[in-house]
Design a protein around this nucleic acid. Structure first.
Length: 314
DNA sequence: CGATGTCAAGGAATC
DNA sequence: GATTCCTTGACATCG
């Protein structure tokens, strides 16, 4: 079982995850690629074998008003191939997760079209690195728009219209509000799309009171035989926090007690709860993408604590 | 230099 | 129909 983390590196100073300068400054994928080389080196040193690449890796590449950014993949063919060779040499499992704004089933035609463009870009990026099928693109079910069956129909129909290359990488994750495990299972049955189980989303959006064992059975058996399934795992945030709130009219800043939302990620992974999850899902083989605010530091701490309890990870 | 404002993008709740 | 929240980091600009 691999343990991975998402995008941002905290364990070493100076490792950026993408070229995030504003368009006026001419950011470019080639700069992001050089950042990824440094990150991959760090992953190798830390023996971390799974990583989520930033979805902003190619700045403004799908921005409708900035066509000068649209050819970045072609401009970086050779660099992407070399980066992919390094990833394969290090046996890295890589993935991507388009932002919340990418919604396949939106009733707004232009939103749908931009979602397709975005999925195509993510797919082409991973293809250009020459990565295998374990390098997936994760998405959610999208909006509900007051009629979930119709929204699911739209997802299914549009999924079937996606290019085969996109369908070969796209996987579907349960979310915290709209699409629970039974919902995405329904979509899987009509599309064959593999399912990612997110434990935290399942904990806060589980209308049927389904156990982790059952949720894992339903999600993790949807993957092709040659591709190891994966789950997203995080510990819910429970402690109270204060946040600064600015009054827009007066500019006055006050400290406000933020609701202890169970749907937010904690800084670290609770090792005992994690082991409990492992036990509940022990009959399945899968990789784990950790979603903790302390990123790779949380991964390293969890791995140490697992080792102390006699549990080895890759 | 530190503080503050802003950022490409959607959905849903609220008024 | 318009506004605000969601939630986050870092760039960019201001003082």
């Amino acid at each position: 079982m691999r343990l991975g983390f998402a995008v941002k590196v905290l364990g070493r100073e100076g490792l950026k995850s993408n070229d995030s300068r504003r368009w006026q400054s001419g950011p470019h994928l080639s700069v992001s690629i050089s950042y990824l080389h440094a990150i991959f080196d760090y992953l190798a040193e830390a023996s971390i074998s799974m990583y989520r690449i930033s979805s902003e890796i190619a700045p403004y590449i799908t921005h409708p008003d900035l066509p000068q950014f649209h050819n970045q993949l072609d401009e970086c063919r050779r660099d992407l191939m070399k980066l992919g060779e390094k990833a394969r040499r290090l046996s890295l499992r890589l993935s991507m997760h388009p932002s919340q704004y990418i919604v396949l089933n939106s009733p707004v035609e232009s939103v749908y079209e931009s979602a397709v463009r975005d999925f195509v870009y993510h797919t082409q990026f991973l293809d250009a690195m020459g990565l295998g099928r374990e390098a997936v693109v994760v998405t959610h079910g999208g909006g509900v728009y007051g009629d979930k069956p119709a929204a699911i129909d739209r997802f299914v129909e549009r999924y079937h219209r996606l290019p085969e290359s996109v369908r070969a990488r796209l996987v579907l994750e349960n979310d915290e509000k709209n699409y629970s495990v039974p919902d995405i299972v329904q979509i899987h049955e009509r599309t064959g799309i593999p399912l990612v189980l997110d434990n935290l989303h399942h904990a806060v959006n589980n209308p049927a009171g389904m156990s982790y064992t059952e949720a894992a059975r339903l999600c993790l058996t949807t993957w092709p035989r040659a591709v190891k399934p994966k789950v997203h795992y995080s510990t819910p945030r429970t402690e109270e926090r204060t946040v600064n709130r600015r009054n827009r009219k007066t500019g006055e800043v006050t400290q406000v007690q933020a609701a202890p939302l169970a749907s937010q990620h904690a800084d670290w992974i609770n090792v005992d709860e994690f082991i409990g999850f492992l036990h509940e899902t022990e009959q399945f083989d899968y990789d784990v993408m950790l979603e903790a605010k302390q990123k790779d530091l949380a991964l390293l701490r969890l791995r140490t604590e697992l080792r102390e309890r006699g549990i080895a990870t890759e």
